[in-house]
Design a protein around this nucleic acid. Structure first.
Lengths: 342, 342
DNA sequence: CTGAAAGCGCTTACAG
DNA sequence: CTGAAAGCGCTTACAG
């Protein structure tokens, strides 16, 4: 026996058959206690490590799951990955991560890589324009759950924040402060989560008889900043701004600073996505928090149940967002001559 | 042929032997062009996907690398992962990620998981107290590179910022602004990178005849905040603060706010680790940036050369940090009665 | 340049 | 409850 010991070496050492060793190691309890001890002892003395690849080839399970994510630097996704890694690890799974950088081409290629790796299942956050091709590239035999950016006609189990409602509540809050002209800065309505956020926002504004200004500002911080600087220089600018995700929030804060717009006196800001830094800015930014923990737990439930071929209840989870009020949102006060919108 | 097509199915379809198919698919050019075409055609028409697990079992390569990281929410590590994923992907590798949460026990367990997964190599950022046991748990046959938290007696190829020099330069800068009493808030000197940062800081302060105040503030944002609030309430507090990493910076900013200490008038702040938010705070925070791109590229070079059994030149890379001056650091001006240190 | 055969290290029916 | 044998889908010497 040169190199690593194999299961066969263990069998010889323990003086049992190869099959018995396999049974013991897989936790099959139909093995006599005495043999089991001999096997375990042999494993220890040989410092045996199971060759997981050989097992996978035979039993068709890799105990690996793929995570397809647009961008790890986005704190929301980083938090999601952190939670998922813990859940997977606790369940004996390991995760392979792949990033798509919001590029549909790359997304397709990366999803294929993950499939070739023969993962047992995959958790996907689609990128812009990626939802359409998902069904065909995933196929129906691969356990899969879609997270966050769930398309309207999505065929897979999914979990996301109830974006419509969260945005609706956010807008209601802004209205309750007296704001009547509020803008929503959204990355792109081609993303379904954003689309829902815009819709919830608009619904609330209509109900509250406010003026809703929908601004599409692009996917990056820089694009958002430039776009919003233009908005802030308009004659009749809104008195409150609602950002559609953390990247846009970043751009908005930059724009506010560059244009010298006082927050919250001249402009209230409500952010979608909460995270540590928002508390530290001055004024601290009010935000709608997405329940990352819950989203991760549900995604894992949905995926592991599919892998285990268990019954899935509630295959489309929508988690409630929570409004966190800090200092960036204030009662609307008419300033000088500028009038409130209509 | 039920289920997925195998290489054998392709061989039958193309009317060649199994071995020939294998050769073509592995890019072995010693196959006649005509056969190659037939094989490729058969693959397409059957929609053949190579079973990578079977290949791995035979050739002992998984084309997978493990990344062991303390915490994905730390932006520095998130950025590192993002870069590494791109490099790995471009090289035909996929990454499995494992987080240790700064817990030595968990680190050990996770490193073992990665090894059992039979990765071709591993990139490790040790956690506190984890460096000591690394050598024995990794073994000498596994390609490995240590990043960022490189121990003094580290036996593996490594890449990190030149922490001593970066901190030295930072302290020199603070001295040049006239500060003579400056504190460094460090998470723990048990981390070698932090240890180096403290040492570089102290060296500069000695040379500049300043008073160096070393404060160990703990690993979390909360601990750092509480610890620094105490510092800010001391009678003879420093006029400038140097934080040892991004988590401590977070705590420092919170403490500054809570204690109502004006920055930079009453206290200059220089952060180790730069990232987007630092620009957006007011005042914008001066920082020492670690060259994440370079670090990732070098780590990948070191790892892939080991995997390919190529010669490794320069196995211990130390990259230069860069000082970015913004608004949080200002010339020291004596305020009222409070005297400069000693 | 091509093919037949052995084997990677396990798991899984199947006998006993 | 235990063991002998076949086989998972490839790669790799080895003949030809």
């Amino acid at each position: 026996m040169r190199g690593k010991p194999t299961m066969n070496d263990v069998a010889i050492e323990a003086v049992v058959s190869l099959g018995t060793v396999s049974k013991v190691l897989r936790g099959d309890m139909t093995v006599a206690a005495e043999l089991r001890e001999r096997v375990l002892g042999a494993c220890r003395s040989l410092n045996y490590q199971r060759n997981w690849i050989a097992a996978s080839l035979r039993n068709r399970q890799t105990h690996t799951i793929g995570i397809v994510i647009p961008d790890i630097l986005n704190t929301f996704y980083a938090a999601l990955v952190e939670k998922l890694e813990n859940l997977a690890s606790a369940g004996g799974y390991t995760i392979v991560i792949v990033t798509t950088g919001e590029e549909p081409q790359r997304a397709l290629q990366r999803i294929n890589v993950v499939k070739e790796r023969q993962v047992d299942g995959v958790i996907i956050i689609p990128s812009v324009g990626g939802s359409e091709t998902l069904a065909s590239s995933i196929g129906s035999d691969m356990p899969c759950v879609i997270v966050d950016r769930v398309a309207a006609e999505n065929p897979f189990p999914s979990v996301a924040t109830d974006n419509f409602d969260a945005a609706y509540q956010g807008a209601k809050y802004l209205l309750s402060l007296g704001h009547r002209h509020v803008a929503i800065a959204a990355n792109t309505p081609r993303l379904w989560n954003t689309y829902q956020r815009i819709a919830g926002f608009e619904r609330a504004m209509i109900e509250g008889k406010g003026r809703a200004d929908v601004r599409i500002v692009g996917m990056t911080v820089e694009e958002a900043r430039i776009s919003l600087e233009a908005l802030f220089r308009e004659r009749e600018r809104p008195t409150a701004l609602f950002t559609s995700n953390n990247l846009v929030t970043l751009g908005a804060i930059g724009a506010l600073r560059n244009c010298g717009v006082n927050m919250p006196r001249e402009m209230s800001l409500l952010a979608f996505d909460d995270f540590e830094w928002l508390r530290l800015l001055r004024p601290a930014i009010s935000a709608i928090n997405q329940p990352v923990d819950q989203i991760a737990v549900e995604a894992w439930r949905l995926l592991s149940h599919q892998i285990g071929r268990r019954q899935i209840s509630n295959p489309d989870v929508r988690a409630a967002g929570q409004l966190i009020i800090r200092e960036s949102t204030a009662q609307y006060v008419q300033i000088g001559k500028r009038a409130v919108a209509r």
